[in-house]
Nucleic acid binder design. Sequence first.
DNA 1: TTGCGGCAGGTAGCAGCAGG
DNA 2: CCTGCTGCTACCTGCCGCAA
Length: 367
Amino acid sequence: MTNKKKITLQDVAKQSGVSISTVSMIVNQKSDVTFSAETIKKVMDAVKTTGYIIKQSSSAQHQKKDSEKLSKIIAVFCPNVTNPYYSTIVQSIEHTAHLCDYRVFNFNTFRDPSLEKEMIKDVLEMNVSGIIFAMMPSAPEFVEQIGDSVPVVVIGDKDSTIQLDTIETSNYIAGVLIAEHLLELGHRHAAFISTTLERPNTMRTRRLQGIQDTFKKVSPECTVSVYEKKIIPTYERQNIFLEHSIGFELCDQCLHSPEAERITALIGVNDVIAYGVADAALKAGYEIPKDFSVCGFDNNFPSRLISVSLTTIEHYMQEKGSEAFQMLYKKIGKDRSSSDNAERITRIEYQPKLIVRDSTNRAPIRK
DNA sequence: TTGCGGCAGGTAGCAGCAGG
DNA sequence: CCTGCTGCTACCTGCCGCAA
């Protein structure tokens, strides 16, 4: 093993016959001192001869460090980016952040609570300027706690009780809108097809609740059958094909169940699930919306394609992403130690809007 | 005034050590 | 074994002062 000594300013000074200070000032091109052309040449020749590597000056390094301390980086947490709902939000945040000269690090939690917690800890060590949760955090109490030390904004459900600044939409009302639309079209029996329906996925349960309550209001005869498959949060399984295939699989189950005879509407808990639902119905030989009306939630981009044309709920992902960053930006700008800022929670609400497309129509008459 | 040297002090990197 | 603290050393910068 070679033990080659590092070439330093001292070596260059010795080689050129000037002092270390002189070499330092010349190689770092100090603006407030001047040197003779002869000395500069001697020093630069010595740099070449010795092989000294001119580093970034320490003052420049310090400047860089200082700017890092005041990092213009924010972290965004979401379950995944394969679902267009989250990728649209993340991209919208990134676009707005870019306008304010901020950069975005995105973290996919795959709805794994322990992974989410680890990632949050890593992010806190990175000294980011702020954090946006594009979904309800799995441990709201923990996130409320970190909210004391770093600005946090959550994009979540209106009915959540989280004590942080939030951009919210009422998923309950979203469910009501879908139910009202189907009831108006004469549907009385629907199937709700969903991934895990339990905490922290309150968004999904609130959608279901809105549908069930609205159906019940019209008549006790109306039914909403629930088809649920629990997702195990792992990297391997959490992808867009998973949600699509769960929609497909659960719809297939529904179509082969005895209650398929009376069900006329199939509701996916989100658009991606609804795509799977529609595919299963089509593969089984049914026509949409002649045999079954299909709808989802989120109004993802593919839902507006003519070949898909899914009735869904507009969730204003782009607007929410942009608003979330602006909210965070204001919080970053404020002095966090000021009492003016303490104990004040801002909530911005977006009203969900029904988007009617070709996947829903009047309920067929079942024998 | 210009050109340069000397020196104090700051920083990074590394090794050693203690405690959990 | 890992982590955090401390001290040492090398390297470099910034400021002051001196000689021409």
